[in-house]
């Protein structure tokens, strides 16, 4: 438990949170592991968690009828997986699958949501951090959509 708390305190994503807030987060956190190709969540399921990847690689993909899964993005060690727990209606938008043995810290979103309602300072801090992640992902997706390496035959 203590190592978990220390890991969270040292993680760049949670930098500058107070000791109390870290303790509070640690209270909602636990370690988890996924085997190769194991799904962490699937589109449409209730989103009540988020993950801090400690080791391994997660693939976000979208399933297209008749064409199978399309990879959208990979999430690496040190990065945050999942923000849907924060935004109603709290459902996952994509499938997330481990590309290899993956270890992560999972935080209970449901529990955090109610804590954020009680403690708006914490809520604000988390919202700030997650909104920048949402922004980065949106930006990356937009560039990806441009298909910049496409052939432009004369």
């Amino acid at each position: 438990m203590e190592t978990l708390q220390r890991y969270l305190a040292e993680h760049p994503f949670l930098k500058d949170l107070s000791a109390e807030q870290i303790t509070l987060l640690a209270g909602c956190a636990s370690n988890v592991r996924f085997d190769t190709n194991e799904f962490i969540f699937r589109e449409g399921q209730e989103a009540d968690k988020f993950y801090i990847i400690r080791h391994g690689k997660i693939l976000l993909e979208v399933f297209r009828p008749n064409q199978g899964a399309l990879a959208i993005q990979t999430i690496d060690e040190g990065e945050i997986l999942g923000w849907s727990w924060l935004v109603p209606p709290y459902h996952w938008h994509f499938d997330a699958r481990a590309l290899g043995l993956t270890r992560a810290i999972v935080l209970d979103g449901k529990c955090l949501r109610s804590k954020c309602e009680e403690d708006h300072d914490l809520g604000y801090e988390l919202l700030k951090r997650f909104s920048s992640i949402i922004m980065e992902r949106l930006q990356a997706t937009r560039i990806q959509l441009l298909d910049i390496y496409k052939r432009n035959d004369a």
Partner: peptide
Amino acid sequence: YGNVGVVPT
């Protein structure tokens, strides 16, 4: 099994 996403990320 590698990365998916644009280089700047």
